[in-house]
């Protein structure tokens, strides 16, 4: 912990030593401006991703093939809303208001994960998302449970506990399809073809192109580099695809005896950056839906505020 009274450069030094020593930073503690700024950006982006991430899967709730699948999907999408809320709360401890974060999302100023700008064309996409997108999210999020910022770490612990069901239900769905009719198996393969590369890109740009990573690692916000996490995910997914008897759409995918890891072909980073800049296939639709939901809900928020004020006034009158 850093003493408020210390000289400015001493404080920065004390802070670095404190986090290097695996101590937690809490909201009231002194922290460098850059640390708080990095966290606000990362946590709010993460929260926005959970909220926007409800749309691609939400698209299939009314068309789920059975009541069982429908209940599962509904619960999963509801979890994602919860994840968004845990994360917004964590960001709010850094003195940024919920209203501001929501405004930044809706104005397009704030980013969210590029993966959610791809369409869910068939039911198999619900399986591919659970298996690959939630699977990738887990790889990303487990190290964040040890993040130096207490409120973020605690939110991530809660999130990780819930994510495992998301990944498993997706894998199970893919398994049902891949063991089904030839058409169903083709659907599963097609979903993997379309979601594989966007999932691989979820870990962000390659290390040599990720300028803020080193500082985030020093501050113990990040624990592993983008490329290390990506490799972990690829190794895991290759085995899972084998178990599903479907093929990863990469002719260059090869086991590297020397490293003990799977090497992939070239990743299309131009596509990644285009989607990040808002040119994904569904970018406009996602934003339009988010704004519409916010505006359509305005009367509910206003009514609840008015009702709460009325109740308060009534209670005060009784007390008087």
């Amino acid at each position: 912990m850093v003493h408020e009274a210390s000289a400015p450069d001493e404080r920065a030094e004390q802070f670095d030593a404190w986090v290097a020593d695996e101590n937690k930073v809490e909201p009231q503690d002194w922290m460098p401006e850059g640390y708080a700024k990095t966290l606000v950006r990362q946590i709010s982006q993460h929260a926005h991703s959970e909220i926007i991430g409800m749309q691609p899967e939400g698209n299939w709730i009314t068309r789920a093939p059975s009541l069982r699948r429908k209940a599962i999907l509904l619960a999963k999408v509801q979890d994602e809303a919860g994840h968004g809320l845990y994360l917004y709360s964590a960001a709010e401890t850094l003195n940024v208001s919920r209203d501001q974060m929501e405004a930044d999302l809706m104005s397009g100023k704030a980013k969210y994960s590029s993966i959610f700008n791809y369409p869910t064309l068939t039911w198999a996409d619900v399986g591919a998302i659970g298996w690959l997108v939630d699977g990738a999210a887990i790889v990303n999020q487990i190290p964040l449970c040890r993040c130096s910022y207490g409120p973020y770490a605690r939110a991530m612990i809660r999130v990780c506990k819930e994510e495992s069901f998301h990944q498993r239900q997706g894998f199970e769905l893919m398994m049902a399809l891949s063991q089904g009719t030839p058409e169903q198996k083709a659907m599963a393969q097609d979903a993997l073809n379309r979601w594989w590369w966007p999932a691989v890109q979820m870990f962000g740009p390659p290390d040599h192109d990720s300028p803020h990573s080193a500082q985030s690692m020093a501050w113990k916000i990040k624990r592993f580099s983008n490329d290390d996490l990506r490799q972990k995910f690829i190794d895991m997914a290759v085995k899972q695809a084998q178990a599903l008897h479907i093929e990863i759409p990469d002719p260059d995918l090869k086991f590297n005896e020397e490293t003990g890891h799977w090497d992939t072909g070239e990743i299309n980073w131009d596509e990644f950056w285009a989607v990040v800049k808002g040119h994904g296939p569904c970018s406009r639709e996602r934003m339009a839906n988010r704004r519409k939901a916010h505006n359509d809900g305005a009367w509910v928020r206003e009514a609840a505020t008015a009702f709460a004020a009325k109740e308060r006034a009534r209670a005060e009158k009784v007390a008087a």
Binding site: A75, Q78, D79, G82, L85, Y86, S89, E92, R98, R154, A155, R158, E162, R301, A304, T305, F307, A308, E311, R312
Partner: peptide, 23 residues
């Protein structure tokens, strides 16, 4: 468990049920 926004305490309890006790 965490925090949340609500118009009043009653709504806070209802929302807390959905946000923090789904399991």
């Amino acid at each position: 468990a965490g925090s949340l926004h609500a118009a009043d305490a009653k709504m806070a309890i209802e929302n807390a049920r959905d946000v923090y006790t789904r399991r």
